[in-house]
């Protein structure tokens, strides 16, 4: 791939993340997004859990879908997803207890996260395990970026501190105070701030989508106009060519016709 193609592919990746964003575009799994995005540690922890469950469930569902009758496919998928979530929850509780207690009930609620069951039904049951895994990874990354963006805003504006705690050892990896103490807008740490941040990010994504759609529509329109213009010009050229050909034919006939009256005139003269 050339450099230009590479760049386009990369831009395509980010564009894809925003355009088909499951959280801000399709409003899936928003319960967990609103609740846990208080700190970046929570966001990354939850994002990792969702990625693990999504990838594994997509693989398992794509493996079991061919042998599953249609009527029981929902309970089958639910059992798979619920087992994965329970395992992830148990591992988290054992090895990352601080993360487990901050995420609380929302780890178990990953099982009813619309993204996971939605992808299983829409994609994984019709594709092979490798493609399903990739789809799960993409969706999971999309979700993680969304919650990361939201927690970044909420934590920095709400507490003024940008910090990350290693979930495995419960030690703080870094902590920067970006807003002086006492000037932070603590409403962002409350439920209200959660709704506000979500609304603004959703509106941004919608604005981007609308602008993009408008650009695409205008490009389409311009293309159509140009095509019509080109067609008109081609028609004109063809018509001009036909007229020129006709004029030539007339000209060719004219000497024939001219000598005839000239001959007649000569006859008369003679």
């Amino acid at each position: 791939m050339t450099a230009v193609e590479n760049k386009e592919a990369k831009m395509g990746f980010f564009k894809e993340m925003i355009y088909n964003n499951p959280v801000f575009g399709l409003y899936l799994g928003i319960c967990s997004v609103l609740a846990i995005t208080t700190t970046i540690t929570n966001a990354i922890g939850m994002g990792m859990a969702v990625i693990v469950v999504l990838v594994l469930s997509n693989i398992l569902v794509s493996l079991i879908a061919p042998i599953t009758p249609d009527e029981i496919h929902i309970p089958v998928y639910i059992v798979i997803i619920a087992s994965l979530v329970t395992i992830v929850g148990m591992v988290m509780q054992a090895y990352m207890p601080s993360l487990y207690s901050s995420l609380g009930a929302f780890i178990d609620l990953i099982v009813v996260n619309c993204i996971i069951l939605g992808r299983a039904e829409a994609f994984a049951c019709n594709h092979n395990p490798l493609e399903s895994a990739r789809d799960g990874l993409m969706m999971g990354l999309s979700y993680t970026f969304s919650v990361l963006a939201m927690s970044f805003i909420r934590q920095v504006l709400g507490t003024g501190v940008l910090s990350f705690t290693n979930p495995l050892t419960s030690t703080e990896v870094f902590a920067f105070r970006l807003i002086p103490a006492g000037y932070e807008i603590s409403v962002f740490t409350t439920q209200t701030g959660s709704f506000l941040t979500f609304a603004i990010l959703a509106a941004l994504v919608a604005a981007y989508k609308n602008a993009n759609d408008r650009k695409v529509a205008e490009a389409e329109k311009a293309r159509k106009v140009a095509a019509a213009k080109a067609a008109a010009e081609a028609k004109k050229a063809a018509a001009a060519k036909a007229a020129a050909a006709k004029a030539e034919a007339v000209k060719a006939e004219a000497p024939k016709a001219a000598p005839a009256p000239a001959a007649k005139a000569e006859e008369v003269k003679a």
Binding site: T190, A199, A202, A206
Partner: peptide, 21 residues
């Protein structure tokens, strides 16, 4: 335009959350 549909509903929810506190 960009708030139409769900985003404005979330703004409404934010105000209601304050009310319910």
């Amino acid at each position: 335009e960009s708030f139409r549909g769900n985003p404005i509903a979330f703004i409404v929810a934010a105000i209601m959350a304050i009310a319910f506190t």
